[in-house]
Nucleic acid binder design. Structure first.
Length: 328
DNA sequence: CATCAGGGCCCTG
DNA sequence: CAGGGCCCTGAT
């Protein structure tokens, strides 16, 4: 696949964000458990991330300029043309939402800082927020390429989708792909996608893109609806089932208590960490869900802290049993 | 070489 | 509500 010519984003604007405290920059801004894609790059203290926001292809750079208790982020917005104040404000607000920079963690931390399981996680990751860098549509695309595939294959599917339908951006001496507009994907013939080795997911990708292309799903409106309504609408999308919805309810809609389902591969890992079971002898899903009951309205947030903790650990030390489970 | 499961979901009976 | 089939890939 030949590389596209990159679109240059020559206008650079600096915005400032003061997150709520405590704020842990790196564990919020970067998730080692997520598979890596070419729309983003991370080094300690910095994350580059492209985004399609209100039809505008943007390059973002988040820079850590603060501390745990005195946090500050410089958010640089790179664009092709000059942006209005209102537009920039909307970008800022959206990033505060997506990265949960206004989340109040105090109650959660106070309630569980002595919890046997969470104690260690909080010690290291206190101030971390769950985060998803992109829109609901971005997330649905990722959810679809994840399905029934080893991580490695998901990565290559995502890459060929970017190469064929994404927009290559050049900013801050980086070249990164940006998400395509839903209307692009909505009109791709299924055969064309299948040639990219997307497999049967091609149908889901196209069908999920259509209501977004037609403006029938408005993410901002959806955020205001009840969890029940959100769930119903998501499950109505072809190719989106309970597992994907479980992720979306937390990551996109910020329901920290939504934990209805733990998939087998996740169950194996959590069971080992929480109950010390052998990796191939996990406790039942039911027992895991019962365990998380004690975290009440923070069930999903607690699971997220445990999850991120193990993947951060994996970055610095080798965890043999985990390597086998992830199967890169 | 064949077989199989993998970070699910849809459809059928 | 259980179970087969689905694209493709790399592991066995």
């Amino acid at each position: 696949m030949s590389r596209k010519k990159a679109k240059k984003l020559i206008i650079k604007t600096k915005l400032e964000i003061i997150p709520t405290t405590p704020f842990h920059f790196d564990s919020t801004i970067y998730k080692p458990g997520h598979f890596s894609t070419t729309d983003t790059e991370w080094i300690a203290g910095k994350r580059w991330q492209t985004t399609l926001w209100q039809e505008e292809t943007l390059g973002l750079l988040f820079e850590d300029k603060g501390t745990l208790m005195k946090p500050k982020i410089n958010l640089y917005v790179f664009s092709e043309r000059k942006l209005t104040k209102d537009f920039l404000r909307s970008v800022r607000n959206e990033m505060v939402y997506r990265f949960n920079l206004d989340l109040d963690l105090k109650e959660f931390i106070d309630s569980f800082k002595h919890d046997l399981v969470l104690r260690a996680c909080l010690k290291k990751l206190k101030g971390m927020r769950p985060m998803t860098h992109g829109s609901l549509y971005d997330y649905l695309v990722i959810a679809i390429v994840l399905q029934n595939a080893p991580v490695r294959r998901s990565v290559s599917m995502m890459q060929s989708l970017f190469e064929n339908y994404g927009v290559l951006l050049r900013y801050d001496r980086k070249e990164l792909y940006c998400m395509w507009k839903p209307e692009v994907m909505a009109n791709v013939p299924e055969e064309e996608l299948r040639k990219l080795k997307i497999g049967y997911r091609a149908k889901s990708l196209i069908r999920v893109s259509k209501p977004f292309a037609r403006g029938e799903i408005n993410e901002m409106e959806l955020r205001k609806k009840s969890p029940e309504e959100q769930k119903k609408i998501l499950l109505g999308l072809y190719g989106i089932g309970p597992q994907s919805v479980g992720y979306i309810m937390g990551d996109i809609f910020h329901h920290w208590d939504f934990l209805e389902h733990i998939s087998p591969w996740e169950g194996k890992i959590l069971s080992k960490i929480i109950f010390g079971t052998k990796i191939d002898r996990p406790v039942s899903e039911k027992k895991l869900l019962e365990f998380f009951e004690k975290y009440e309205k923070y069930k999903a947030l607690a699971a997220n802290y445990i999850w991120e903790d193990i993947f951060w650990k994996r970055k610095t030390q080798k965890i043999d049993w985990l390597e086998k489970e992830i199967r890169l």
